[in-house]
């Protein structure tokens, strides 16, 4: 579930509030997004994908809260890690689609059925 909105990084663009498919965020009086309905988070990572400044963090657990600290996430290079893989914000330098290895996935799979 969503666990962090970094006030430090947030530029108050409002995009996360708008793109969240399950309407988890509200905007507070200062214009900052707040996690208002964490229980409605479906752990789809889309907010992170769209955040232009990597201010959001969705933890791995779908049903339980996970305690996180911003510094630890920065140290582990996790803030923005999903957006970097997709390539959103890279101006086309990175594209998850172009790097898709689905067509050669069966090569990696060969040998399994033969028990190698």
């Amino acid at each position: 579930m969503i666990e962090l909105v970094s006030e430090d990084r947030c530029i108050q663009c409002g995009l996360c509030v708008k793109v969240c498919p399950t309407n988890v965020f509200d905007t507070n009086e200062d214009g900052l997004p707040v996690i208002a309905r964490q229980e409605d988070c479906q752990t789809c990572y889309m907010c992170e994908a769209y955040c232009p400044v990597d201010a959001l963090f969705v933890a791995h657990h779908a049903d339980e809260k996970v305690a996180v600290t911003e510094q630890d996430l920065i140290d582990r290079d996790l803030l923005g890690s999903w957006r970097a893989i997709i390539g959103f914000g890279s101006r086309g330098k990175v594209s998850m689609a172009a790097n898709d290895t689905t067509p050669i996935l069966r090569q990696a799979r060969s040998g399994i059925a033969r028990g190698e």
Binding site: T43, Y45, H60, H61, S81, W82, I85, I86, M96, N99, D100, T101, T102, I104, L105, Q107, A108
Partner: peptide, 13 residues
Amino acid sequence: AIIRASTPLWFVP
């Protein structure tokens, strides 16, 4: 590397 790049989100959690 092939498995990861085919289904990157699976590895995120």
